[in-house]
Simulated assay, not measured.
Amino acid sequence: MKKMIFPVVAVLLASCNPSDKQTTQQTAETQTETATTETAPSADSLQVDGITGATNVANASTFNGTLVIPPQHFAAITLPMGGIVKNLSLLPGTYVQKGKVLATLENPEFITLQQEYLDSRAQLEYLEAEYHRQQTLSQEEAASQKKLQQSKADYLSMKSRMQAAVAQLQLLGIQPEKLVGHGISPSLEIKAPISGYVSNLQANLGKFLDAGEPLCEIIDKSRMMVRLVAYEKDLENLEVGCPLLFHINGLGNTTFHGKLIAIGQEVDDTNRSIELYAEVTENNPLFRPGMYVSARMGKK
């Protein structure tokens, strides 16, 4: 009897195994398809810009950029007249007040210009008096019209010459009236047009600087701005006046606030980007132009 039982059991096992294997395989395939469907992003939720390669994630509103100085708070100190640097009281990073003397220059032409003003001023006083005298004589018919006209021409010519000297001195920051009481100054003073921090110093003692050559730059950090980069796809979500939150690389997790004040009207041909400008609400002494910024629109 035992020899007949074992073959039957073997047959039963052989008949059950194919069904179990098929069921197990179907279950595994179903689980794999489910996992793939859950992890793979749909075409609606993830798009890639074919030109820039930027990923357009739904509801994404983060931007990168840098801290910048507004043009009204940035001054490049250039020389109206060339000369040799005689005195220099600057170091990069030092703070200077508006009107402070940054450097003094020596140039013989500066002395000549002052002399021309003083000479023309003195000559003008004489020619003006002579012209008025000729007018009086002409009315009394004691002088010819020719002398009157010559006197008038000399007076007007000297007047225009003095006015030219005054304009040149004013361009150099010199008040001509002060020369009458104080005399000729041997050196030209270069003064700060705004208050701020000195940067990009280009001079040293004894160096000759040509007219128009930069001496240094002054940056006023009291009104910092954020310059951000956006793309065409972001325009529909941007509006002047939108609040801004941003972080600065190197300043930890501190959150700063701002407001969007300008949206660029020209798209860059290379990367299809658009510039955004936002004013900064909080001023921080650690701010530096060029610091990297990561920002997003929103109040919180």
Results as ranks from 00 to 15, higher is better:
residue 3 K to L: 14
residue 3 K to W: 13
residue 7 P to K: 09
residue 7 P to S: 07
residue 8 V to P: 04
residue 10 A to T: 10
residue 15 S to Y: 05
residue 16 C to S: 11
residue 17 N to Y: 15
residue 17 N to F: 15
residue 17 N to L: 13
residue 20 D to W: 15
residue 20 D to T: 14
residue 30 T to A: 12
residue 31 Q to E: 15
residue 32 T to K: 12
residue 35 A to I: 07
residue 39 T to K: 13
residue 42 S to F: 15
residue 51 I to M: 13
residue 52 T to S: 04
residue 59 N to D: 10
residue 60 A to P: 05
residue 60 A to N: 05
residue 62 T to G: 10
residue 63 F to Q: 03
residue 66 T to N: 11
residue 67 L to Y: 03
residue 71 P to N: 07
residue 74 F to A: 13
residue 77 I to P: 00
residue 92 P to W: 12
residue 93 G to K: 02
residue 95 Y to L: 09
residue 98 K to T: 10
residue 101 V to G: 01
residue 103 A to H: 02
residue 106 E to S: 12
residue 109 E to G: 06
residue 110 F to K: 00
residue 111 I to F: 06
residue 114 Q to P: 05
residue 117 Y to I: 01
residue 118 L to N: 01
residue 119 D to T: 11
residue 122 A to W: 10
residue 123 Q to S: 15
residue 125 E to Q: 09
residue 126 Y to K: 06
residue 132 H to L: 15
residue 135 Q to D: 09
residue 138 S to L: 13
residue 143 A to K: 08
residue 144 S to F: 08
residue 149 Q to T: 10
residue 151 S to T: 03
residue 151 S to M: 01
residue 153 A to D: 09
residue 155 Y to T: 05
residue 157 S to T: 13
residue 163 Q to V: 06
residue 165 A to P: 00
residue 165 A to C: 04
residue 175 Q to T: 08
residue 177 E to R: 06
residue 181 G to H: 08
residue 187 S to T: 09
residue 187 S to N: 14
residue 194 I to P: 00
residue 194 I to N: 06
residue 195 S to H: 03
residue 198 V to Y: 02
residue 200 N to G: 08
residue 203 A to G: 08
residue 203 A to R: 03
residue 205 L to M: 12
residue 206 G to N: 07
residue 209 L to P: 00
residue 210 D to Q: 15
residue 213 E to Y: 14
residue 217 E to I: 03
residue 230 A to W: 02
residue 230 A to Y: 03
residue 233 K to Q: 10
residue 234 D to Y: 03
residue 235 L to D: 08
residue 239 E to S: 14
residue 244 L to V: 02
residue 245 L to F: 10
residue 253 N to L: 13
residue 255 T to Y: 08
residue 258 G to K: 00
residue 260 L to G: 00
residue 261 I to H: 10
residue 263 I to Y: 02
residue 266 E to V: 08
residue 268 D to V: 08
residue 271 N to E: 11
residue 271 N to D: 14
residue 272 R to N: 01
residue 274 I to G: 03
residue 274 I to M: 02
residue 276 L to C: 01
residue 276 L to F: 01
residue 277 Y to G: 00
residue 279 E to G: 05
residue 280 V to Q: 01
residue 284 N to F: 07
residue 286 L to Y: 12
residue 286 L to F: 15
residue 288 R to H: 01
residue 289 P to F: 05
residue 289 P to H: 07
residue 290 G to K: 02
residue 291 M to N: 00
residue 293 V to R: 00
residue 296 R to M: 11
residue 297 M to S: 09
residue 298 G to I: 03
residue 299 K to S: 14
residue 299 K to N: 06
